[in-house]
Design a protein around this nucleic acid. Sequence first.
DNA 1: CTGTTAGCGCTTTCAG
DNA 2: CTGAAAGCGCTAACAG
Lengths: 354, 354
Amino acid sequence: MRTTIKDIANYTGFSVTTISLVLNNKADKIPRSTKNKILDAVEELNYHPNQLAVGLVKKRTQTIGLIISDVSNVFFSTLAKGVEDSCRSQGWNLILCNTNDKHERDMSYIQVLANKGIDGILFCMARDSDKKKTEESIQLLKKLKIPFVMIDRYLEEADCSSVIVDHKQGGYAAVKYLLGHGHRKIGCVTGPSGLEDSMERLKGYKKALEEYHISFRDEFIYEGNYDRESGAGAVDFFEGKEISAVFAFNDMSAYGVYNSLKKRGISVPGGMSLIGYDDIFFSEILDVPLTTVKQPIYEMGVESVKQLIDEVESGVGARKCIVFQPALIVRESVGYGPAYDPDVESFKENTFFR
Amino acid sequence: MRTTIKDIANYTGFSVTTISLVLNNKADKIPRSTKNKILDAVEELNYHPNQLAVGLVKKRTQTIGLIISDVSNVFFSTLAKGVEDSCRSQGWNLILCNTNDKHERDMSYIQVLANKGIDGILFCMARDSDKKKTEESIQLLKKLKIPFVMIDRYLEEADCSSVIVDHKQGGYAAVKYLLGHGHRKIGCVTGPSGLEDSMERLKGYKKALEEYHISFRDEFIYEGNYDRESGAGAVDFFEGKEISAVFAFNDMSAYGVYNSLKKRGISVPGGMSLIGYDDIFFSEILDVPLTTVKQPIYEMGVESVKQLIDEVESGVGARKCIVFQPALIVRESVGYGPAYDPDVESFKENTFFR
DNA sequence: CTGTTAGCGCTTTCAG
DNA sequence: CTGAAAGCGCTAACAG
């Protein structure tokens, strides 16, 4: 049997209250001598409070849940690392939940976590969530009165804190960079059209185009699914459209584009310029290191934990929206496009756009 | 306030005992009618038992801990996915613990998990663990009477179950394949010499060499650290040694070798054959898809959970050692070596060695 | 300064 | 068949 607080009481001759008091640093009025005796006994008997019991009465477990679709996905595992590191450094623990992007699992995990008495949830909603499902999740969270912060998604209606990245800016930066290199016909491999982050990147794309007075063309937009196959599909789709650069909305589909291009004997950046999004660590070590838009995922994990714990401890829903700025990481997959003219000032300026 | 069992009691007019009985399927002698009334009330009031309270009395939480060094490492995130999937399918939960390969964190997490009442631990020991530290961890686990299964490490003395892969066989398969392709001077980029898995792969290397009556040469062995830098270091180390193939003990260092080779203008497999270990998913999509030894990591995660839950539920430490066989995944990074002669029967036979 | 007491929400004998 | 009561290990008024 584990040592309990009673054992310490018996051993020292003091009451459980006294023990509890000194262990919880509420022992202002307890003499050093008593304290020391107790602390010694704790050490000697190797006493560690049963956190289930503590949680039951304190209604706090110093544990949060992380709901994501899939840890084996680099994006999420990086996030999870940030989250876990941040938790540990503050003495908290992390329950990991994978939903495989199924809304029903979001729902069931929220309930399970609540039953376990977690103090808060870091919530990356499943991708299959439409408006109604999203609302359903939020409703549940609220009904259960669980503090939560949404990651990678901001919802006006949600009335909660979120940690997001400015994807419109990311898309804008990528496309502007391409334009600055003389590309005019730029293909896009988007994510699922239902996803806000994809839509935002597209907005960024449009914004950059507008700045250059180039009209938006639907036939340059391929709706992908954030996977490698999407990249291959896009290459087929772009065929014959004289595109000189493609902006893939994540690195995975950029790889798909790259591989598919290679099979057709088209080189990067010689035959086609390519820019990705995410900066997954492999992007750097590819044969043609990928120019891409980096999301500070790890930092987002760290930050979201801070925010969540803050809300838990203060007891107030801060409703704060922390937005991270993505950064363009220039490597070697973008070359100059047909419109490039080294003598034009605007190009010079844009070459080092960041 | 959440609905409690008392609320259900009040609402239905039955006692808490009765409620508890039907909720725990121990209601053999309770009439359907009562049961239904209770179940209806549960539904209506949306009652979910507080698992902290349940855990406190049952001394079971249906939760296990996973101690690994770093989820953001693909190897571990794949493992974690297997573990989590397996947990969920059995209605269990997972607490994730990253140690960054620090033994002290192994120790502290073990204690923390114990305090939280987890039912078992999946333990990937930190890499900095020498014999003494290892023993210390095991001792703690035993003192705490926590069922645990070790992953990727087998210890005679540990007297516990483990899930491992036959690394000697993996190393053997890789090197035999290389030998079969006519390579005779084969460089090795090992892992840290203290690690058993690295040592095992090396044993496999030696075994294959012996079969070909080739004597082992120390100058072909470069002790790396399982990272990309190791690969680069190895290439320096091998310089001028007329090596025609290198066997890197993990994919990461293989990439390092590949990149470093490329910088020197040496192609793979033209100028040098290369074989890795792990089959991280990126290995397949590299420019020169990497021939490598695949570890069934996900499956190991799934299996280890099964084993652990089994032990928890049966209450007996099974002390079972589940060994997974690695598989050689042939792709394009290995060519023929100087000793290759298409007319020699043994080569033909070995070309398709698996 | 320290102890008594009453729970937290649940399970589980033990009666009836 | 159902309920009363004890107790899991701990905290927190409230006394004294």
